[in-house]
Design a protein around this nucleic acid. Structure first.
Lengths: 142, 142
DNA sequence: TCTTTTTACTTGAATAGTGCAGTATATGTA
DNA sequence: TACATATACTGCACTATTCAAGTAAAAAGA
């Protein structure tokens, strides 16, 4: 008697691996650069966006986290000067987050560490397949 | 100027999706069955193992979580009777976790909910590709 | 215009998760 | 045997994350 379908067991595997990877990277980045993996992801998404600028709500979506989680997480990052708060003249509700010069520098350094660890994680998977995985992720409906 | 390699951006995507999925399933399972997704995963791994029995440390590995995290999480599950604590006569250090009859029932019911949600998540991906993803996950080195 | 609804964000209370230190048991080695 | 090291687990202090409630501004509708 089968209890879960293929989709479910894949979801379970996905989240287990993600937990393990997050823990590993938290330790790695934390020891070397003083930020966790989630903080790294903030810097990454800012770096990818035009003008290094994002709305908090879009950041929450990109990270798969709640709005309040983003608010709280950003406080320490502002305090240590990796990001700054900007206003949107068109809409007074939004509070934009910007990557500072210092944040960019930390991002670039931490990226080197991440690159090494990430290569280790995918060492048994061919480059073409990595591309393929990423394509599949983009088609997930969450 | 490229900052992160393909491996890194795939890791970032993986963890973002996992966060979003976890949040979605926490809400879904919590509302209907009174357990979060992580608790569901505990029941799932116990159900998959022989005699419905696991060591706490192996459970932690399967979940990608710390040993103390498992200890803490298991307390409420024992209190509501979904799992029970067993001793290992061969090794007094280990404390085994067993899926109870009540836990099995909850697991089976929650699996129905999960199956539905999981199908929705993979709706744009072909069955053959789902198999493929799972195979790739098993080859990750974490 | 005035009112309702939606959106963006923040705060507080509660919960969850971590690392580290400590305990107890088992294993390896001389 | 004795001793050092490794393993399994737990408790504690700290950090992180969430939900629900609240504020304020924008958009939509009458």
């Amino acid at each position: 008697m089968k209890k879960v379908n293929d989709e479910s067991s894949t979801v379970i595997e996905l989240c287990s691996k993600s937990n393990a990877i997050t823990r590993k990277l938290d330790g790695n980045l934390g020891a070397i650069h003083g930020i966790g993996f989630i903080e790294y992801m903030v810097l990454h998404h800012l770096n990818e966006s035009p003008q290094l600028l994002m709305r908090r709500i879009d950041l929450a979506d990109s990270l798969g986290r709640s709005a309040s989680g983003v608010t709280k997480m950003l406080n320490p990052l502002e305090k240590i000067g990796l990001v700054s708060k900007e206003v949107n003249p068109r809409d007074a509700r939004v509070s934009l987050v910007k990557l500072t010069a210092s944040g960019l520098k930390t991002y670039q350094q931490a990226s080197n560490s991440l690159n090494q660890v990430a290569v280790g994680i995918f060492q048994r998977i061919k480059p073409a397949e990595i591309q393929r995985i990423q394509d599949l992720f983009n088609r997930l409906v969450v």
